Each structure stands twice: as C-alpha cells, then as structure tokens.
Amino acid sequence: MTDDRIHGLSPELIAALPKVLLHDHLDGGLRPQTVLELADAVGHRLPVDDAEGLGDWFQQAADSGSLVRYLETFDHTIAVMQTADALARVAKEAVLDLAADGVVYAEQRWAPEQHLARGLSLEATVEAVQAGIDEGVAQAAAEGRVIRVGQLVTAMRHADRWQEIAELAVAYRDRGVVGFDIAGAEDGFPPDRHAQIWRYLAEHDFPVTIHAGEAAGVDSIAQAVHVGQADRIGHGVRIVEDIEFGRDEDGSPLATLGSLAHWVRDHQIPLEVCPVSNLQTSATSATSVADHPITRLKELDFAVTLNTDNRLMSRTSMSHEMRLLVAEAGWTIDDLADVTIAAAWGAFMHHDERRALIEQTIVPGYQKIEGALL
C-alpha cells in the first residue's frame, strides 16, 4: 500500500476494483512496443523508433485540442493492423491489458473497413479479431483473471459503407459481435445520411451505440437517439449544452434541463463518457477533470459510464481515469461503483447476464475494497 490515499482510496485499491468498459477503440489501445514491431514487419515508417518515445509522441500528438488532429494519430496504428496475425495480436494484448487493469467486461470497437489494405476480407478481419479476443480471454483466465469481451463493429461515417458494415455486424452476432457503431467525422455525417440502416438494425433486434455529442452538439445527440435509435451515446458530454446551470435563491446549484436532456435522462440512455480524451479533443470547455461535465451529469442522475476511448493516445487506463476523478473531482468509492453498475446495465448482453455480472462480480468486488477501507 502507498500512502497517497484520497477518500481512503490508494492507487492499488482503485486498480483492484472491478471495472466495466463500454467505449474503447481497438486501434487506439496498442502497446507502443507492438506498434514498433508490427511497423518493422510491414515496412511502415514511424515518427519515433523506441517504445517510450513513441508513447510520448502519440500522447503529445493527440493532446492538441483538436479532434481532427487526434484522429490523425490512427494513421499509424491502422497501418500496422492490416494482416490477420496483426489483428489477432492487437486484440489479444488488448484483452490482457484490460484484464490486468481489473476490467471484467469490455467492448472493443473498431472499423473492419479500415483493415483491408493487404487483401483481407471484411469477414476475415472480424474472425481474426475474435481469435485474438478468445486467446486473450483464455490466457487471462489461466492467470486468474476473468474477463468477458465483445466486438463493436463500426462503420466510418464518411465512407458510406454503413449498410454493408451493419450486415456484417448482424452476420457475426453469435460469433463475438455484440453491437454496431458509427464513428469518425461527426460534423456533416449525421445518422440520417443513411436512415435505412437504423430500421435494418432495429428489425434485427441489434444493439446500437452512436458517437455523438463529442465534436458536434445537441443536434447530433438528437439524431443519434431519435433517428439512430441508439441504445447508448458515444461520449455525449455536449448534452450539457441543453442544460442551463445556475443557483437558486439560497445559492444552491440549480439545473434546468431542455427537452432533449430530459429525454436522454428520462430514458436513462447511457452516456459513454471519456474524461481524458474529452479534454484532449476539446469535446468540452473544461480544462481539467475537476470541472469536466461527467460529475454534474452524474449528480443530475444521467446514466453516466466511465471509459477510456483510446488508451494509447490518451496514455490512460480505467484505473487512471478513476484516480483522476477521485483526486481532482472528489469522487468516492460509491461514485465509482455507480458508474460501474451503470455501465454493466448498459452492456450489450442480455438482462440476466447483466444482473449476474453486477451481483456476482461487481458488488462483491466493491464490498471487498470497502472492507479494506474500514
């Protein structure tokens, strides 16, 4: 144990908490050493030729305050993920890294259409990633860590292959794929660009999460929930633009919700919030985790979940995100439990499986750490 405890929580205790991760990009979570080795194998030139320096480069390049600049860092990771072996390796290592961080359930999102440069078919990419996930889950279990991981298949907004990718996701629903997403440039590529996709997915009873409320505002979120019929919102932090914050006559905090904010909260649509990433991309006007909207949204009873987005670019982990919220925003173990349970209820698996995850893993895990605090 270290002595740097806040609310009784040391880094070691936070690391031991069971975690649920809904928003984590496979191509944004590579180990720097893996990027180096895969790049060398395919002759891809990197800006830095050592693992520590490369990790620094990714973080600095992503820490520009621009989502466009942030997304440019993916040119390097995607370039080295163009073979079945590379995809399987990255997926396996992602599972092992998450399990080592205490994650017990995760969804890995990625866009198969971006991994065809060396001749793979869409189907082959999904199968390679699933092979890596399966291997990672098995190795984690052998090491005493239980984790469940599903694929979230993503269509890139600007590429207009939405129908094809949606059909791919549905085809693999019983072979590891748990949901569908659209990502990439949010402005100019709204869900109504291909409105038939959402009808297709609904007719196939297939879960949907949509990136919204990150680079674009309230209108983007409205389209995600009303046109896209999203079960969850990727990021969603700009829902605060539909909330008027003030104080009542006694000086107590006051919030007046607009119609969309009411809709999102009333329906308890989970918000996949990624604090460190949001600060990097200026998805919020906040300048620190202390004033990030996640705390206010949680206090207002939105269905807030905590996520990493891109562990490589943000040099983050679930434990790191939790430590920052504890240290800078005053979160307690109860706050961390709330977002973990909210994420479990929002996971793309069946209701009885969600309940079992909460009752058999999350609650006992938190009770164990709470006991250590006494």
Rank of each mutant, 00 (worst) to 15 (best):
H194L: 09
R199Q: 15
E203M: 05
F206M: 12
P207L: 13
H211G: 00
A216N: 12
V218T: 15
V218H: 05
A222K: 12
Q223D: 14
A224L: 05
A224S: 12
V225A: 00
Q229G: 13
Q229C: 03
D231M: 06
G234W: 02
H235E: 01
I239Q: 09
E241C: 01
E241K: 10
I243C: 06
R247I: 04
E249Q: 13
D250S: 13
S252R: 14
W263K: 11
V264I: 13
H267F: 07
L271S: 12
E272L: 10
C274H: 06
C274L: 09
L279G: 08
Q280A: 07
A283V: 04
T287Q: 14
S288K: 04
V289A: 12
A290K: 14
H292T: 04
I294K: 10
L297N: 08
L297Q: 08
E299V: 01
D301Y: 09
R311G: 01
M313L: 14
M313V: 11
S314I: 02
S317N: 08
M318Y: 08
E321Y: 05
M322P: 09
M322R: 14
R323Y: 07
R323C: 09
R323F: 06
A327S: 14
A329L: 05
W331K: 01
T332P: 04
I333D: 13
I333V: 15
D335R: 08
L336Y: 07
